[in-house]
Design a protein around this nucleic acid. Structure first.
Lengths: 202, 202
DNA sequence: ACGTTACGGTAACGCTTGTTACGAACCAGG
DNA sequence: CCTGGTTCGTAACAAGCGTTACCGTAACGT
């Protein structure tokens, strides 16, 4: 049982290739052969690392969640105030830069795949609810005077806005530029009062 | 050159079948054979009515836009005040009912298909920009005192919120119920002032 | 050093896909 | 009644898909 190669590293490399292919060719272009070609190996090696295509998709989905989660942790920890943390978390979840727009396209691809795959759908729901919980906690920190129901509805609304910005940026980056996304987000955050409207620039 | 059957009606019937299949089996399940089976005919008839699969997809996409557009016209005309019209248009664009949730799933399917198909992508962009224009006009009517830039950014933000509610409802109807969507929308509309916050349920 | 074992590539499998060629059924005109 | 043209179903096609069986190869344990 000697691991001649690092299996974990290979799984991550293949998941990254999956991510890359999904961003470039979309869901219909996501084939095992395309992933193998992108990863510089053959389909045999792919299916030796993953049981089947769904396992590859699931791992790639988990990888995407892991990246976004770590990024959210980072910007949240780096923020000075709870209001700035909330804004930073939401902004990084949107797609204000070209590389995030690519990520947004991948996100839409996984979303569409989840509509037909119960396993991916359950993953997607779980990750999204976790994100809603994170935002809800931040909202409650910013506005401790609000009742829980208001924090909850505000969180779901903010998450919906961010996801909407993601989907729209994925297909129309010209109309939904990074600046436009920032404006929309700040407008929504203005409802939380001046404490959340603070942001570094200025 | 006798048309033994109504071609236009057949095109609409096939597009409806496309819509139905897309809602039920998702984008990967959208095959010509599935559409033909749903429409009660064969693939030969499908490809006699449409040149190829993309033409069928494009027509189905146009049909979806036509439906939503007509619905938006209807609720906008039926609304008493501009504020109520804006709210009604945005709410019908979201997915507050189960049948709209199905439509939202179809919408996500077309979105993902558009990421890989330039023709569908251009259609999608055009329709979305038209919707943004509609919302912008309503915002400008509700708040004539606002500068154009504010109306524009508010419109894009509202559209992003609605699209986000659509995508989230498509995959997690339990969390994003119709009531939750209404609350999120009303919270966003509250920024426009009391004129837009009015809604029928006194 | 050698045998064992896991790994990764090759090539094929069966299946489904979009697409096309061809034949049968039907309605109009003479 | 027959003839011509159009419409639709049948069946086949090549291509691509996910998946699997097989086989050389290289590293580890003894």
């Amino acid at each position: 049982m000697a691991n001649r190669r690092d299996r974990v590293d290979q799984r991550q490399r293949l998941s990254a290739a999956t991510w890359s292919v999904l961003a470039e060719r979309g869901l219909p272009g996501l084939t095992l052969r395309a992933v193998a070609e992108r990863a510089g190996c053959t389909t045999g090696m792919v299916l030796h690392t993953f049981a089947d295509k769904q396992a590859l998709l699931v791992h790639a989905r988990e990888l995407l969640h892991q990246r976004t989660g770590q990024r959210a942790d980072a910007v949240q920890a780096a923020a000075g105030t709870p209001g700035m943390a909330l804004r930073a978390v939401l902004l990084q979840a949107a797609a204000p830069t070209p590389e995030r727009q690519e990520e947004a396209r991948v996100w839409v691809g996984f979303l569409a795949a989840a509509l037909a795959d119960p396993v991916l759908a359950e993953l997607h729901r779980g990750y999204n609810r976790r994100f809603v919980d994170r935002v809800r906690g931040l909202v409650a920190t910013v506005r401790p005077d609000w009742p829980a129901a208001d924090c909850s509805s505000t969180a779901t609304g903010l998450v919906a806005l961010v996801e909407g910005l993601n989907t729209l940026t994925a297909i129309d980056p010209a109309t939904y530029s990074g600046a436009a996304q920032r404006v929309a987000l700040d407008a929504a955050l203005a409802r939380l009062g001046p404490a959340a409207a603070d942001h570094p620039s200025g």
